[in-house]
């Protein structure tokens, strides 16, 4: 099971839990599993059928461009972090 680091602002939904072991072969499935455990998480991370524009997903240290389609391994670490910005636009 992948380890998800729960973003600080979502810990109200996880009862303060900072790390969660969840099943899933892709980031999308990981979020589905999280949603099952902690209802409301998906609506915060996603907008429609994609990750929110301001959210970056890091899998095993690399910021993923595949985003929801990114493959996740059994021992992967998944982080949702604020997307790095340089400025408006």
């Amino acid at each position: 099971m992948a380890t998800v680091w729960v973003p600080a602002l979502l810990r109200d939904l996880t009862g303060g839990i900072e790390r969660a072991q969840v099943a899933g072969a892709t980031v999308r499935e990981v979020i589905d599993s999280l949603e099952a455990q902690f209802p409301g998480v998906r609506a915060r991370l996603c907008e429609g059928d994609s990750l929110r524009p301001g959210v970056a997903v890091v899998v095993d240290g690399a910021v993923s461009r595949q985003r929801l389609r990114q493959k996740v391994k059994e021992d992967s670490e998944v982080h949702f972090i604020p997307a790095i910005t340089g400025g408006a636009g």
């Binding site: 790095i84 910005t85 340089g86 400025g87 408006a88």
Partner: peptide, 15 residues
Amino acid sequence: EAGAFPGSPVTSGMG
């Protein structure tokens, strides 16, 4: 400060 519209580099600063 983002200026007139949202989008300052504050997240980069946090990094």
